[in-house]
């Protein structure tokens, strides 16, 4: 999606919220209808004059990362890959468990951002996730999604503590 379409997306989302508020409340004079309608109206007034209806020069885009050269395209792919890694992480967290999913996501995102797979950084990431998992589950008792590796760690810690 083009960067200049984002303000319009914001307006569309706010319009949906206003419609939902009208549908879900008994009166048009209710608090949520007033608040959401005002948000939509004010955002529209603030945003519409600033939207460049003609396509702007690429260099004018704030934080422009959407370049055309081969190098810029490669960087763009890496940024998308970084975002994709964490979206896949959310999707797989329940299936793989905290330790495996977090280790893989951390190693993959380090690989993408550093540009190369560095063994020490990757090993450090795995050790860090393991230590974090042990701390939060056995000392602080914070439940995290668990699967094979997590259960094995729990059982090992339990066995060690029993002895």
């Amino acid at each position: 999606m083009s960067y200049r379409m984002l303000p319009l997306l914001l307006l569309v989302v706010l319009a949906c919220v206003v419609i939902a508020a009208v549908q879900d409340t008994s009166s048009l004079m209710s608090y949520p209808v007033f608040i959401t309608a005002t948000a939509f109206l004010l955002t529209g007034l603030a945003v519409l004059p600033t939207i460049p209806w003609r396509r702007p020069a690429r260099a004018a885009l704030p934080g422009a990362v959407f370049g055309r050269t081969a190098g810029e395209r490669r960087r763009m792919v890496r940024i998308i890959a970084f975002c994709a890694v964490w979206l896949i992480y959310v999707a797989l967290l329940n299936r793989l468990g905290f330790v495996l999913a977090s280790s893989l996501a951390l190693v993959a995102s380090l690989w993408i951002t550093l540009g190369t797979l560095r063994p020490i950084a990757s090993a450090g990431a795995v050790v860090f996730v393991l230590a974090l998992a042990i701390l939060i589950t056995t000392v602080l008792f914070v439940p995290v999604p668990k699967a094979g590796v997590d259960h094995w760690i729990d059982e090992t810690i339990f066995t060690v503590m029993e002895k």
């Binding site: 508020a21 879900d24 005002t38």
Partner: peptide
């Protein structure tokens, strides 16, 4: 007002109806 709109999501504190 965008912030207030986000805060209004959920059960109404007045009549208990679910909104947005």
């Amino acid at each position: 007002f965008i912030g207030l709109s986000i805060a209004a999501i959920g059960i109404s504190p007045v009549d208990g109806a679910a909104r947005m």
